[in-house]
């Protein structure tokens, strides 16, 4: 158990072993572990980010949905309003049309009446003249008595 040249050999062996362990075992394996650690950390942070983004998206979706609902409500109520408006409008227009048709019919009727009256008057005048001729037995000079006939016709 005395110190001797074995010491030198063991020193060399130890130094060589350190060098080898560093090169063969520690170097590659610690690099691998570091890389893996980094990858795991990256993955975790990405997952965290994804979760956050999902939350944001969910919130956004909710907002959009709420907005859409509101808009739909608006459109619906507007449509309803417009509908009643159209109905009212149609009612008014129909009433006006009816009025107009009625007026036109009335005008027609009165025109017809006056025309009938005119014709009647002329026929009566002719009738009167022929009657008078028969009564007098002599031809009435239509020309000579025109004025009188006119006034007669007017009186009918």
């Amino acid at each position: 158990m005395s110190i001797n040249a074995t010491l030198i050999i063991q020193i060399i062996a130890f130094v060589l072993l350190i060098w080898f362990v560093n090169k063969v075992l520690w170097g590659p394996l610690s690099k691998l572990m570091e890389d893996r650690q980094k990858r795991i950390a990256d993955g975790l942070s990405a997952a965290e980010k994804g979760k956050h983004e999902l939350e944001l998206a969910e919130k956004r979706a909710k907002d959009v949905l709420k907005d859409a609902k509101l808009q739909a409500q608006n459109v619906l109520s507007q449509a309803e309003k417009r509908g009643t408006e159209i109905v009212e409008d149609a009612k008014v227009k129909a009433a006006e049309e009816a009025e107009r048709i009625k007026a036109a019919a009335q005008a027609d009727i009165s025109q017809e009446i006056s025309r009938a009256r005119e014709q009647l008057r002329k026929e009566v005048a002719a009738l009167v003249v022929s009657g008078a001729e028969k009564i007098l037995n002599k031809e009435v000079d239509a020309k000579a008595h025109n004025d009188m006939l006119e006034t007669l016709v007017k009186q009918i």
Binding site: A5, T6, A13, F20, L25
Partner: peptide, 24 residues
């Protein structure tokens, strides 16, 4: 004297060192 080499120590420790390297 000083230039004594403990063969068993040297060989066994070297073999164990090689075991580490080989397995690595």
């Amino acid at each position: 004297g000083f230039w004594t080499f403990h063969l068993d120590t040297i060989i066994v420790s070297a073999l164990l060192g090689m075991l580490i390297i080989g397995v690595s």
